[in-house]
Amino acid sequence: MAFYSEKVMDHFQNPRNVGEIKDADGTGEIGNPVCGDMMSFYIKVKDNVIEDVKFKTFGCGAAIAVSSMVSEMAKGKTLDEAMQITNASVAKELGGLPPNKMHCSNLGADALHKAIEDYKRKHGGTT
């Protein structure tokens, strides 16, 4: 049995939405204090909907797969819907993560939420 599920390996090998958005409406970054992973998220928002999302991640296979999955889940969602994405729902969508990766690498939703909060701060919480 491989260490990672097929879906995790797919997102790790073919990550969706890698990159940065130069004129992002919101950015969020999160680092893990234990293993030093880092995730940066960039969002473009139009009419309260996440129109585009990009990320860059320094971390293990799981961290990259998680970031990719979060970006896919967030795209096209309203800000409120995107705030409902949790680290647990991302792991579930990936078909599970090894137990020791659940906390360390599974921070994508937190980074996305930070980007949304950043957007709201800049735009006074209304659009």
Partner: peptide, 24 residues
């Protein structure tokens, strides 16, 4: 490296930044 925020930071600023607050 193309997907590493640490690398893009280095390319933009020529500075290194720590990967995380600390390592156990």
């Amino acid at each position: 490296r193309d997907m590493s925020p640490l690398y893009s930071y280095f390319l933009k600023t020529g500075q290194r930044r720590p990967a995380g607050p600390g390592t156990d």
